[in-house]
């Protein structure tokens, strides 16, 4: 049942992403067809959202006039393109920011009886993830996965927020990054389930507890169900983070389309509203990704009694 909902949901997300893709494509096609400066602008502005081999920096101009911004090194290892791109830089920036800030916060909090300032803020989120996400979905048995889920929450949050500062980019607005996070979530969900109920039970659960004659139908569905959950996580985060950026780009682009300053107050006003919405979405999506991962892990951990019921059914 749950798998069915998730599949449906994921279909809806997939559809949304497709529409998005189609819109971007048509914009690109339009630009190619019309060769007009205004149409080109949209595709140019959209490039701001895409990953790139260069990094835009304030007050920096590349000596090579054909290259926009600082060139990043290209790396190829074992036939895989491991080039450092803009999103990799922001991935690292988020990681470094978290390592430095949270280490300092942890030290400061350990010294004081009452946390202040940033320490207090971080603690609010830590307590929230522990009590409202992990304990609520997984019980006390989930506490050993708390470091993973905390890292997940803070990492996604900071990557989301980095896209909202000037010259910044959301690494989570890149489907490869969200796919990477979903791959980790997939393994964590399976590990949690296998550790809680054993490999045998985990395998038995793939049969859905139905009569063996139905296994040829049930087993593929259950295996598909394992993948749809993280797939939905991947698409949801990517689409949410990209969507807001595209709307802002489109709104600002209107000024250049109409080539009138009169449009500017309206465009900027709407863009500001969307920006504030994105600020909220940055927190919301970090929460949703972490909460759903925790929920799926919790479901896998609690199926022991579920499996026993199935055996009674036989």
């Amino acid at each position: 049942m749950l798998s069915w909902i998730l599949t449906n949901e994921q279909n809806a997300h997939g559809a949304a992403a497709d529409t998005l893709h189609a819109a971007a494509d048509s914009a690109a096609h339009g630009a190619a067809a019309a060769h007009g400066g205004e149409e080109n602008l949209f595709t140019q502005l959209l490039h701001h959202i895409y990953d790139s081999r260069t990094l835009e920096l304030p007050f920096y101009h590349n000596p090579d006039p054909t290259v926009h911004g600082l060139s990043l090194p290209a790396i190829h290892l074992f036939g895989i393109d491991l080039s450092v791109t803009k999103h990799v830089v922001f991935l690292w920036l988020a990681a470094v920011l978290l390592m430095v800030t949270l280490t300092l916060v942890a030290r400061a909090n350990a010294k004081r009886k009452v946390p202040t300032g940033l320490g207090n803020l971080v603690e609010v989120f830590v307590v929230f993830v522990r009590d409202e996400i992990v304990l609520a979905n997984m019980g006390t048995g989930g506490l050993k996965y708390l470091p993973y889920l905390l890292t997940n929450f803070f990492f996604i949050l900071v990557m989301n927020l980095l896209g909202l500062i000037p010259y910044g980019a959301s690494a989570t607005g890149n489907i490869s990054v969200t796919a990477g996070l979903a791959v980790i979530a997939f393994f964590m969900i399976q590990i949690a389930a296998i550790r809680a109920q054993g490999f045998g039970h985990w395998l038995a659960h793939l049969t859905g507890g139905v009569h063996w004659a139905l296994w040829p139908i049930m087993v593929p569905i259950e295996i598909l169900g394992l993948f749809t959950k993280p797939f939905a996580l991947c698409i949801r985060l990517f689409a949410n983070m990209t969507g807001g950026h595209i709307v802002i780009v489109a709104l600002i682009g209107l000024i250049f389309v109409f080539q009138s300053l009169a449009v500017a107050p309206v465009s900027v006003g709407f863009a500001l509203a969307i920006y504030l919405l994105e600020l909220f979405v940055a927190f919301l999506q970090a929460y949703i990704f972490t909460m759903l991962t925790s929920l799926f892990m919790g479901l896998g951990m609690q199926t022991e009694s579920h499996g026993a019921e199935h055996q009674h059914g036989h």
Binding site: H21, D81, I175, S176, G180
Partner: peptide, 11 residues
Amino acid sequence: MLDINPGLIIW
């Protein structure tokens, strides 16, 4: 936009 970059996943 929707093309997967394996390098980025690895990073």
